[in-house]
Amino acid sequence: MITYLEAIREAQAKALTDDPRVYIYGQDVGRFGGAFKATKNLAHEFPGRVLDAPISEDAMVGSAIGAAIEGMRPIVEIQYADFSTPGFNQIVNHAASLYWRTRVPCPITVRLPSGGTAGSGPFHSQSMEGVYAQYPGLVILTPATVEDAYSMLLEAVAIDDPVLFCEHKYLYYHLKAEGLPTEALPVGKARIARPGRDVTVVTYSAMVHEALAAAEELSGEGYEVEVVDLRSIKPIDTDTVLASVARTGRLLAVGEAWPWGGVTAEVVARVASEGLALLDAPPRRLNAKNTPIPFHPNLWGTHRPTAPTVARALRDLLRL
């Protein structure tokens, strides 16, 4: 059995083995193996290529951009996605614009340990993908499975553009698979995580599992819920979303990020503008609550969407 976190470690080990241009840079990633151990033993196995960084997110990303200009393919580990804000400028203004401005590609991978876990509080729980998705020039991946964590991270490193790899901390240890995948859907393709014909849930990352649990619950009530795992939120595979809505006639977009704008709003907007006639009911969204992310598990469990709240939203939608 291999966990989501181990898959991320294995993908990095493979990238370092296969490509001498790859190196890893981040706080505590060296001998210590990273705050979550995503780089465990890599410094030992790949001497000189897994470097501890000072607590300087702007300079970490900036230096990765410079190294990419010179032909390297850096992987930057931000300790928590929340702490990418000091590096925001280099990500959105520099990495994202480099190719467009200069015709020199910027193949950096920024790993963002994202999303909430019980007890993590407002500054160790955020889902930043929607914020970054606003900026042109970035590819944003949100793997929901062990297999995707592995194959999409390898793809991220191979892509000639800056990739934000939003790996979900809740899935790190919870999610296990039999082994590493030998084949995978390409980046940019969504996946039908569960087929159904009554309603479509479009979601990504940890929320895929809440949606699958909700679908299971509703199957007991006689409803077949289709769950679409976006896998990548920039680009969004709009075709797969529309095809699913064409089958079910109903859409619920679920995300762990905040409700103002973001991925779920984008999905609803696309379906409304390209597929209004496919809909038998108004498209709906379910997101986290519009406050900072609370510390206490009781509050946190209510702040973010969970299987019961997804199920409730689906029942409401199915009644319309």
Binding site: D58, G62, I65, G66, A68, I69
Partner: peptide, 9 residues
């Protein structure tokens, strides 16, 4: 920092 990264490369 971008120049630093160039030098690291």
């Amino acid at each position: 920092s971008v120049v630093c990264g160039g030098l690291i490369a």
